[in-house]
Computed example of a mutant assay.
Amino acid sequence: MNKPPLWTKNFLLNSIANFLIYLVYYLLMVIIATYAMDDLQATPSEAGLASGIFIVAGLVSRIFSGRLIDKVGRKKMIYVGLAVYSLATLLYFSANNLSVLLITRVLHGIGWGIATTTTATIVVNIIPTERRGEGISYFAMSVTMASAIGPFLGIYLYDHASFDAILVVSVVLLVIVCLAVYFLNVLEVTLTEEQLKNMQGLMLDNFIEVKALPISIIGAMVFFCYSSIISFLSAYTKEINQMDAGSLFFIVYSTAILISRPLTGRWFDEKGENFVMYPSFLLFAIGLVILSQTNQGVILLSAAIFLGFGFGTFSSCGQAIAIKKSPAHRMGLATSTFLAIAELGIGIGPFFLGLLIPIVGFRGLYINMAVVVILSMCLYHYLHGRKSMRGI
Rank of each mutant, 00 (worst) to 15 (best):
residue 294 T to R: 10
residue 77 M to F: 02
residue 82 L to V: 13
residue 326 S to N: 12
residue 18 N to T: 15
residue 246 G to N: 13
residue 100 V to H: 06
residue 85 Y to R: 08
residue 107 L to W: 09
residue 370 A to I: 07
residue 150 G to R: 02
residue 86 S to T: 15
residue 160 H to K: 14
residue 310 G to K: 01
residue 261 R to F: 08
residue 310 G to L: 03
residue 115 A to Y: 12
residue 27 L to C: 10
residue 185 N to H: 04
residue 140 A to G: 14
residue 275 F to H: 14
residue 353 L to F: 00
residue 350 P to H: 08
residue 197 K to H: 13
residue 230 I to C: 00
residue 72 V to C: 05
residue 107 L to E: 09
residue 375 L to W: 05
residue 81 G to F: 02
residue 360 V to M: 14
residue 211 K to F: 07
residue 291 L to A: 09
residue 279 P to G: 10
residue 280 S to G: 08
residue 239 E to V: 11
residue 160 H to D: 06
residue 301 L to W: 08
residue 275 F to W: 12
residue 209 E to G: 08
residue 240 I to H: 11
residue 351 F to R: 01
residue 390 R to L: 15
residue 339 L to E: 00
residue 254 S to G: 09
residue 27 L to D: 11
residue 205 D to Q: 12
residue 119 T to Y: 02
residue 72 V to A: 07
residue 259 I to K: 12
residue 72 V to W: 05
residue 372 V to Q: 04
residue 201 G to V: 06
residue 79 Y to C: 13
residue 71 K to M: 14
residue 252 V to L: 13
residue 189 V to E: 10
residue 380 Y to Q: 01
residue 327 P to H: 12
residue 231 S to V: 14
residue 228 S to V: 04
residue 23 L to W: 03
residue 25 Y to L: 14
residue 292 S to G: 12
residue 22 Y to R: 02
residue 148 A to V: 13
residue 133 G to P: 03
